[in-house]
Design a protein around this nucleic acid. Structure first.
Lengths: 170, 170
DNA sequence: TATTGTTATACTCTATAACTATA
DNA sequence: TATAGTTATAGAGTATAACAATA
């Protein structure tokens, strides 16, 4: 792994001084994720969307009529933190909070036509962003990366029911 | 990719309702990173360390005598945000802020013996955590994941100077 | 004039408890 | 009694501007 010209450990010259952490997945993942998040934020900004508003919009369009608590659990955020997100999307008339038949406590969430249009355009920009950040990887590498991320997420979140050293997720 | 029994799009049954987002690297990366961060935080807690204090300690041990501004840039955080981190590590006598010869503005950061000891123990726990979250991956897959994360970080951060579809980073 | 460490500040994200109206 | 949405609040993490001491 040839650390450049190998400086004197007790004197001075540091360049990219994080080699000692680069062997850790957690570290690499956080740095990579931060960088991707930043690029994604720049990508969504022209549409007036943030990561969380975009994700919510996508999920509502994919699951018309879902309730806020379901959306919150799908996005892995607290119900209470979803409220201002829904407020924002509703104020911009990108979604509606409709009454639920048979349950007057809950809302049936639906995207408006404007919401669907905006989401389509934003999604196209996001696809371009994806291509940008994945440029350095071959098709096979992309495929392994995506499956590995899913596997790691499952291992870190819960039990990780794997017997051997092989990918388990779809 | 066979979405389970394919429910009626306009009616109701949602299980894990984020399929629509799982095709996005940014999304998978954030979810995986969050899960790993959470497990890492649990791992470091018994040592009284957070991700940021642990990372700082590792870098100081790897680069004895480095200054705060260098450490901040290595950790990709603002100088100002590093101050309370150094305060905490110094108060716990895990590091020292020594005077720099030839520059009375800066501190030469060094870990104390206690700091090195704690870092060693914490690092062992972190290695176990790594093994835990990577359990589902083969050696080859781990290798590709690590290199892919580095490549993606570079692509997302800066220019991404890659001509083809091959991994570039070490 | 530029840089080092520092303070103060603000904004986002996240986590918790408690309230209301329904079920 | 439990659940859906809501409010309030507090804690992290992050970003910016400005200052004193020093280069």
């Amino acid at each position: 792994m040839a650390r450049q010209p190998a400086p004197n450990k007790t004197e001075a010259p540091w360049t990219e001084s994080d080699e000692a952490l680069r062997s850790l997945v957690g570290y690499r993942m956080r740095r990579a994720s931060n960088a991707v998040q930043a690029d994604l934020a720049r990508t969504l900004e022209p549409f007036g969307l943030r990561m969380i508003t975009f994700s919510a919009l996508v999920l509502i369009i994919d699951h018309p009529g879902m309730r806020q608590s379901q959306l919150a659990s799908g996005l892995a955020i607290e119900r209470s933190n979803l409220v201002p997100v829904m407020d924002e999307l509703e104020r911009r008339e990108l979604i509606n909070r409709n009454p639920m038949p048979n349950d007057r406590r809950a809302y049936a969430l639906r995207a408006t036509l404007a919401g669907q249009r905006l989401c389509e355009k934003a999604m196209a920009a996001v696809q371009a962003h994806e291509e940008r950040v994945l440029r350095g990887l071959s098709e096979d590498e992309r495929d392994i990366l995506m499956r590995a991320l899913q596997t790691v997420r499952e291992c870190a979140e819960g039990g990780c029911n794997v017997e051997d050293g092989k990918l388990s997720s779809a």
